[in-house]
Design a protein around this nucleic acid. Sequence first.
DNA 1: ACCTGAACACCGTTCAAGT
DNA 2: ACCTGAACACCGTTCAAGT
Lengths: 221, 221
Amino acid sequence: VLEAAVRVADAEGLPALTMRRLAEAIGSEAMSLYYHVKSKDDLLDGLVEEVVGEINDAVGRLDRAASGPAWQAAVRARILTAREVLLRHPWAPQLLDRNAANPEILGYYDGLVGLMREGGFTSDQIHHALHAIGSRALGFAHELFTPGGEPPGEAEAAAMAERLPNLTGMLAEIVHDDPGSTLGWCDDQTEFEFGLDLLLDGLERVRSADRPGGRRQSRQL
Amino acid sequence: VLEAAVRVADAEGLPALTMRRLAEAIGSEAMSLYYHVKSKDDLLDGLVEEVVGEINDAVGRLDRAASGPAWQAAVRARILTAREVLLRHPWAPQLLDRNAANPEILGYYDGLVGLMREGGFTSDQIHHALHAIGSRALGFAHELFTPGGEPPGEAEAAAMAERLPNLTGMLAEIVHDDPGSTLGWCDDQTEFEFGLDLLLDGLERVRSADRPGGRRQSRQL
DNA sequence: ACCTGAACACCGTTCAAGT
DNA sequence: ACCTGAACACCGTTCAAGT
């Protein structure tokens, strides 16, 4: 039942996932769904459970050996695995922050907590770490805008350069260093890993705590 | 027109913001709205522009002096200011990642880029940094679950401890260290600042680059 | 136990028509 | 230029009724 819903969402997107459309895809005629599911909200909750279940399956297939002191590599591998699954279900992130605390999500986090505990973090540190990583822990981050739209003409480009000097300057330099990359100049995977490593490296620094480091950090832990 | 929509969303939430309800609030009788706005999507785009405009106004009132080498404090102040505005419009984050690249958002980012450029970052570094900070740049992060729901009974607690040993262990330790904080044990503001500083401190480390540091970081910049 | 048709209240949106 | 009523296609959901 839920699997059919996942297929419809994968193929036609989340807006197309209507009760009538889902019933059609399932062969059932119309509102028989309400026997299997309490409401549409209930169905959506089931969907996220399904997807996170798929993540947990994939995580389970990872090499168990990498834990203990190698916490950073292990956590990194898990999160990138989660990301792979979510890339196959582009509608899922949008659904994931309706924060239904289902067993699959809790199980996923329990695994992360375990890795970090073995790695030498205190409970407080782990708690803060989970908040800091946020939605990235499950393999996605909200991009705030995609470059989309048609390229501006000369006049508009000049006006834009005046209104947004820093942004256009940055773009110009990046394009200059790497011409031909005008579209698709953002490698999502690279950017995601950069942000993730920035956090994980920072957490490792917090854990080892050989130097007091950032002033606010040490206060809060 | 848009201001009325903001008021309705503030007062009754986003789901209550229907064309008919908005028309009622505005005094106009029903579908006169379609003269002022092309579609509901158009209206929502206008809403995010309105909110980010409010952020930009608040940012403009910040102390201009703090820039140059003090890039980190300046960026931090801007982002926390954005967060203050968004806390007054809890429905806005949800709307913000429908990524409409409106002038207000671009202007906000242009300001951030300017601060980081003055602070000594290269264009590539700034580009990666913006991706890394992600939605946090505008003052919000997606929490993946809120503790909600009624506390479990003894039997359920035992079952949960078995299924989620690491998570329950972490919670137990935290509660032990700070009893009486069982509910509301997550201070959102503190957690947000911790995650933000983790990123900003990491970026500062990347900028100064006195030590090669994390292996992946240096490769990607 | 599982499914169904008709119906209800509600959407966003169109369109021809009013001033 | 600005507003409006009636209507359309579509939602999620209820409910009494079928097997």
